[in-house]
Design a protein around this nucleic acid. Sequence first.
RNA 1: GGGAGCAUAGCUCAGCUGGUUCAGAGCAUCUGCCUUACAAGCAGAGGGUCACAGGUUCGAAUCCUGUUGCUCCCA
Length: 916
Amino acid sequence: MSKYQPQEFEDKWYSYWLQQQFFKSVPDEREPYTIVIPPPNVTGVLHMGHMLNNTIQDVLIRRARMKGKNACWVPGTDHASIATEAKVVAMLKDKGISKKDLTRDEFLKYAWEWKEKYGGIILEQLKKLGASCDWDRTAFTMDPHMSEAVIDTFINLYKKGWIYRGVRMVNWDPQGKTAVSDEEVIRKEVNQKLYYINYKVVGSESQKDGKTESHEDEKPQVVIGDDEKQEVLAVQDELLPDLPTPVLTDSKDYLTIATTRPETIMADSAICINPNDERYTHLHGKKVLIPLINREIPVILDEYVDMEFGTGCLKVTPAHDLNDYQLGQKHNLQVIDILNNDGTLNESAQILVGIDRFAARKKIAVMLEEAGSLAKTEDYKSQIGFSERTDAVIEPKLSMQWFCKMSEMAKSALDVVVNGEVKLIPEKFINTYRHWMENVKDWNISRQLWWGQRIPAWYNEKNEWVVAKTEEEAKAEFEKAGLTYTELRQEDDVVDTWFSSWLWPISVFNGIAEPGNEEINYYYPTNDLVTAPEILFFWVARMIMAGLEWRQEVPFRNVYLTGIVRDKLGRKMSKSLGNSPDPLDLIEKYGADGVRIGMLRSSPAGNDLMFDEEHCKWGSSFGNKIWNAFLLVKGWEVDDSLECPNNIAIEWFKSRFNQALVEIEDNFGQYRLSEALMSTYKLVWDDFCAWYLEMIKPAYQKPIDRHTYNVTISYFEDILKLLHPFMPFITEELWHDKLFGERGEKDCCIVAQMPANGEVNTQLISDIDVVISIIGQVRNVRSKNQLSPKESLQLSGKINSGIDYSHYIGVIQKLANVSEFSFVDAKVNGAVAFMAYTDEFFVPLELNIDVETEKKRLEDDKVYLTGFLKSVNAKLSNEKFVANAKPEIVENEQRKKADAEAKLAVVEASLAALAN
RNA sequence: GGGAGCAUAGCUCAGCUGGUUCAGAGCAUCUGCCUUACAAGCAGAGGGUCACAGGUUCGAAUCCUGUUGCUCCCA
C-alpha cells in the first residue's frame, strides 16, 4: 500500500456496491427507513447545495442501513416545466425552429429527446459523491404513473370544489411567457426614475353627469391581454371608444401624479386621492384626461392613498398593478390591459402599439415632454421583481388561471407541524411556517406551458368546459350537463411542476393509483426529508397537504432543513457570480470523502454554510490520517511469545469508544450531524491515533504481542464502521484489506452492523485524563527548557489523591519519555514541579531552577485557586443557593470546594518550601 | 411598512433544561521539531467586556425588555 489517494478506489467501490445491490431495497420484515430525494430539476447540474443536501441524506441512509434497518433512498428528478421548456425553446432556436411553428406534439417530441439526452446528468454526478440511492427506483415526475397520479388528483380536487378558474393578477414573465409563483420572483432594488405627469382636469360641472360617467353603473369590463387565448371576458372594441375632443374650461387646472411606469398611463382607469387631503378637495367629483390619448377618467377618493408619497395623487392602473387592481375592484373601475404576453404594447394602448414596454417608457417620456405634460423626473430607488428563471422584469398581469384552494389543506398541514407529527429541524422554522400557513393564498396551478401534465379540462366551441380524464369521459360530462358540442378541445396549459412534486413521497410508490399496494404501505410515511428552507412553503408544506389529503397521514416524520451554501464572503453561490466551485472538480481534488466531511463540518441544521475549500482540505487530511494509522498497524509484526503490556490502554480505549458511541448516537438523535462528525473525528484522531496507538506502539522494528494486535484490529474495524456513513470510500477500501482477514463477497463495510453500546469505565477515563495531563506537562517542561524530545527525563510523584499510579507508570514513561519514575513523600528540591489534579510531580534537571519564576507561577495558581474557592464558598454559604439549587449541583459545588482546597494546600506548601 | 431570525476568538461555528473561574472546538496565526504511520504530520503558545444598556435570579453567554447592526421572508 502506498499513499492515500482516494481517486484510486472510489469508482471501484461504487461499482462494487451497485453490483452487489447494496442500495436496493424491497419490503421485508425489517423496520423500513425511507428518504425520498428532493427531486432536482431535470435540467440541473450538481451544485454545492446539492452536495450538502445529498451528503446529509447519504449519511442518514448509510447509518440506518448499518443499524439494521431496511434503508431505501428513492432518487429522481422533476420535470421543471419552466426551466426545461426554456432550454428546449433555446435549443430549437439554435436549430432555427420557433416554438410557434410547432404543434404541441412536435414540441413535446423535442422536449423528450432533450430530456433523454441531458436529463440524467445530475443523477450520474450524485454517484461520484457516493450517494447510495436505490437507482432501480429512479423516478421522474412525468413518468406515466406519476403523471396519471397528477391528473387523478386534479380531478379529485376539482370534484371536491377545491380547484377553480379565475381571473387573477399573476406574476407574468414576458420572456418565458409564463406565470410564475411569488416564490420564483426575485426582488431587487433598482435605480429608476419617478416621472411627474400632469393630467388636465375636466372642469365643467355640467360634464359631471354626462355620458362618460355612465360606466360606473355597468359591470366592470375586464380585458384579458392574453393573446394566446381566444377567451376574453370583454370585447376589446368597447375599450377603444371614439376619443372625445377635450374641452378644457380652465387650461391651468391640472393635477400631477408621480409614477415609475409612464408607459402604463394609457391603462389608467382613475386617479385616486385621499379624501382627507386638503390640497385636493377641489378635485372631488372631477374627471381628468390622460395625456396623449385624452381619455377621460374619474378622480376617486380612497384613504388607501399615502398623502406623503409622491404628489398624493395616485394613478390607478388595475390591469398592471396588484394594489391598483384591488382598488379598482373596490371602486368598480374599468380594467384595461395594454400589454401583450411578450411585454409589447397592444391595441388597447392606442399609441406605441407593438413597442416593448421599456422602449415605450423612454418614448412616452419624450412624448409627454413634447406635449408639455411632463412636469419633472426624479431619481428613485425601488424593489422590482425579476423572474428567477429568465431574469426578465416581472409584469403583474391579469390572466385566466387555474387555482387550487388552500385554506382547508393549509389548516391541517399547520396542525401536524404544530403538534409535532412532523418535526422541523431546527424548530425555529415553525414560526415562519405558521406565518405562511395562516396567510396562505390560493395556489395558482396553471403554467401557460406545454411541458408538463396537461390540465384535464375540455372546452366546447362556446368555451363551456368540464373536467374529465379522457375525451370520452368529457363528452359524457357534457351530455350529462345538457351542453352541446361538435368538437372538444383540451386545455392547453399544464399544471405547475409543484403540483406533481407535492405527490412525490406518495407517487414514487404508486400510492395514488394503488393506495393499498405493498410498497406504499411499507415505506410510507417516510422518515426524513432533507431540503432547503427556501422551499419549505411551496414544496414541503404542500407535500404535507397531499399526504394528509390522500393518505390521511403525514409524508415524513422529520424535515431537516439545510442552510444555503455561500461563498467565503457570504454571497449565495450562483452561476452568474461564478463563485461556485465545480463539485466534481472538488471531488477530483480532495476525494469524495474529503468533500463530504468538509461540507458537513460546519453546517448545523438550518444554518447557512460559508463554504471554503479549506474545509475539503481538512476532510482529505483526515482521510490521510486514517490511512496512515492503518499503515502503522498493518506494518506490525506479531510475536506470539510476548506478554501483553497494554491492558490499560486497551481497556481505556474501549471505554472511550463506548462513551463516544453514546455521544454520537445522541447527536444523530438530535440531527446534529456536524457534532456527530466532530465526535467521531476526535475519537479517531485524538483518542485512537494520538493516544491509543502511541500507547501501544512497539518500539521501532520491534514486534507486538498477539493480544494487543488482535484487539487493535478489531478496534480499527469498529472505527471504520463508525466512520462509514461519513466517509464511505476509504472505509470500504480499508475494510477489504488482508489485515482483517478474508472477506466474503457480501462482507462489506456498507452493510456491516454498527458496534453495539458497551460499558464505560468512567474512573479509568478520568484517571487517564490525569495521566494525559502529566504527559503534557512533562513534554512542556522539555519544550520550555529546550530539551530534545529524545532526551529522557526522570519523574517523581508525590501522590495526594487516591489515584493508583502503579497501573499508569508504563504509559507515562513511554509517552513522556521518562526513564525512571519514582514515588516520593516529600517535595523534591531543585526540580521543576507541576501539578496534575491534586498530585505533585517533579522533574529533576541539571540546571538552575529560577526561583522567582517558580514563585510567580505558584502565586498565580494561588490567586486563581483562592478566587475559585471564594466563589464556590460564596455559593455554599448562601442559604438561598443551598435551598434552591438542585441537590446534585450543591454536591458538585462541595466536591469542587474539596478539590480546590486540596490543590491550594499543595500550592501553599510549595510556596512555603520555596521561601526556605 | 409587517413578520421571523441572528450577533460568542482573526474566520466558521458549538455552548442543549440558567449551575465548575465558563468562556470552548476546528481552521488561521506564532514558536520548536523532517522524533521511521502520517510535514495532509508532531509538540507547544497566544488570542474573546459572549453586540450595547437595563432587568429577573442565590447565580446569566444562556431567561426577559429596550437599543444598535446584519440576514431572510412577506407587502
